[in-house]
Amino acid sequence: MVSQVRGMRKRRAGVRSAPAYRGDKRWAYLLLLPSFAGLVLFYLWPAVKTLYLSFTNVGPFGGSTWTGLSNYTALVHDDKFVRSMVNTVLYAGVVVVVGIPLAIAIAALLNTSGLRGKTFYRTLYFLPVVTMPAAVGMVWQWLYNGDYGLINYLLSVVGIGGPRWLTTAPLALFAIAVVGIWMGLGNNIIILLAGLQGIPKELYEAADVDGASRFTQFRKITVPMLSPSIFFVTVLSVINTLQVFDLLFLMMSKTNPALPETETIVYLFYERAFVDNQRGAAAAVSFVLFVLMLIITAVQFRLQRKWVHYA
């Protein structure tokens, strides 16, 4: 920006402007180079390499032989892969569909004028974001413990025999989704809160004059004005939740009978790559996930034209 302004000024003053302008641009590229190099080295190159490996059979200590599409065709007939796809999409669906409206509601409440202890609440909701996933996983594992867990203890106080949250088949996925929602809430709230604070007060004042109720104001002003933030948060949440691994790895033991109905794509990737020593097959799994995310994100960008308002 600054360089552009400067370039324009020079042009107006009639100085030989074009070379100087180009020179500034070069400097910009040069300064971008270190981070671009990092991007190429740590993101782009591994991605290319993964794509290559997905067409090969990788030996236990490296070295690969070209096998064409066989890793991909094997996936089509792999029940475990299909199930992990379903599990992943289900998990992401639950976390996004429940998590984002919840984040909007909490952000709106935190934005209420005259709310006491705002900072305290904000810290409280943001705390899970800065807590290590390993610690989160361990604590929740104990909360969910069927025999000694706090949740089942509290349920027993009111006379309910709680289930085995983490070892009962369809339940475990939802139990972990709850932790996922809880962990992601803080980040989403911060972004939405910033969006809320950007909505001009005049709009609400005008609505008050027109006699619109609080709920109508929320529906007709807050949500449309917040839609760019909601869209942003949704895109990020979908990408993040499709990659869920750490919570599963930490909370589900290898001998957990609910594991087949909980295993996600990245978990399957881990298993293929580091337990079964089939790096090529693992690369194929991760590439399918990449394509899936690409498609879902593209669809989201397509659909946003219908509901996102850029004021």
């Binding site: 069927g146 000694y148 033991s253 001998t255």
Partner: peptide, 8 residues
């Protein structure tokens, strides 16, 4: 049970 031993 197997579940119990997976939990604890």
């Amino acid at each position: 049970t197997y579940s119990e031993m997976s939990d604890t």
